[in-house]
Design a protein around this nucleic acid. Structure first.
Lengths: 197, 197
DNA sequence: TGTACATCAGTGAACGCGCGTTCACTGATGTAC
DNA sequence: TGTACATCAGTGAACGCGCGTTCACTGATGTAC
């Protein structure tokens, strides 16, 4: 039966949020439209009143995950002095908690190798998500110099690589070691950068 | 009809090699058993004479990809003096060619986010592949000191992160920029490391 | 404000399809004598 | 070395299943008067 516009909008949002959570935890390929709607107590038929197809939802889910985590990072960042800011952001990103809860974490790390095989919409959303990761990096490494941009790209590659590998490696000790090594490295380089600036 | 033992062994090897190539290019989920055997002009029924199930093949395919690329790296490394060695390995790994041909490249970078959702066999094979990547790093950064191990882990995370992001990002210029930035960074850090050693 | 009707959010069954896996079968290969 | 038979690599059709998507339907919501 028909629902109010507010209800419908709420449903749509909850589909995106659920998809966003599930694809980060299980991967895009492992999550079906029926899984997502089932989690909400809904049947699949109504899905196509809200989205053109699965890929459109995936793209929105990536976007939502990116906005959610970026907001979290900005929230953590406000009012902090620079050194504490760097510790908070980097130690949060490269924490066992973030590694063990991809469903609430960075979509770039959760989807980076899988998204290469998805459609254009999903890749575009991923591109925007990576752009936001670079914006967060710019809170730590501001400036428009080539050296600042280089360091932002290097930092992004390092933390994404570390988190993804830490999740993929079956040896728990090695997984911790990767996070710790890159944490030390990135924090040391941010310190060195601030001294030169 | 029955084939000779040599033929059967050849078939088995070609299945592994084809799987290894296809999963690196298209991802594990996007490649079916029928795809792999079809590529070889075979029908699917015979597959289960060689492998227990798809996951067993995937694990062997990851292992084969790892051995293949590790051998390539070792080949590139033999007889080279250290500075040229570092350039050859890092510039090869972080090249547009490697980015654009995942089917012939590092399985760790090709599968890193997807493998987290696969079974134990595949994850184990991935773990061994990552171990071999660290061995290749040890050609550039030898030694058993904690600092050497840290630098190997940091280098591995950086180059895997850079390659994966370079493949995933839809903006071609940004993709090149990521590779170039991390290339410069890793080479500079290897130079600095040699000076202290 | 009240009524008649159009809209449409969500249901539940159905669709065609491709998946991993199984199986009876074929006939060349390998083995035992 | 030759023969009779067991083995088994590969075929091709079939299986049950879950997928994304479609569709006729329901009835509360929204709108026009």
């Amino acid at each position: 039966m028909r629902r109010s516009r507010e209800d419908a909008a709420r449903t749509r949002r909850s589909i995106v949020e659920t998809a966003s959570r599930l694809i980060r935890r299980q991967g895009i390929g492992a999550v079906s439209v029926a899984d997502i709607l089932g989690e909400l107590g809904l049947t699949v038929g109504g899905f196509y009143r809200h989205f053109a197809d699965k890929e459109a939802l995936i793209a929105e889910a990536i976007e939502a995950a990116s906005l959610e985590t970026t907001d979290q990072h900005r929230g953590r960042a406000t009012g902090q002095p620079q050194p504490a800011l760097a510790r908070a952001l980097i130690e949060g990103y490269l924490s066992p908690g973030h590694r063990d809860h991809p469903e609430a974490g960075c979509p770039v790390a959760a989807l980076c190798s899988e998204v290469a095989h998805e459609g254009e919409l999903a890749k575009e959303a991923f591109g925007k998500a990576f752009g936001r990761l670079l914006e967060i990096s710019a809170l730590l490494i501001p400036g428009s110099s080539p050296a600042a941009r280089d360091l932002r790209l290097q930092t992004a590659a390092a933390i994404v690589g570390a988190l993804v590998l830490s999740r993929a490696v079956p040896d728990a000790r090695l997984a911790d070691e990767i996070l710790a090594a890159v944490r030390r490295d990135v924090l040391a380089r941010l310190d060195a950068w601030k001294e030169t600036a």
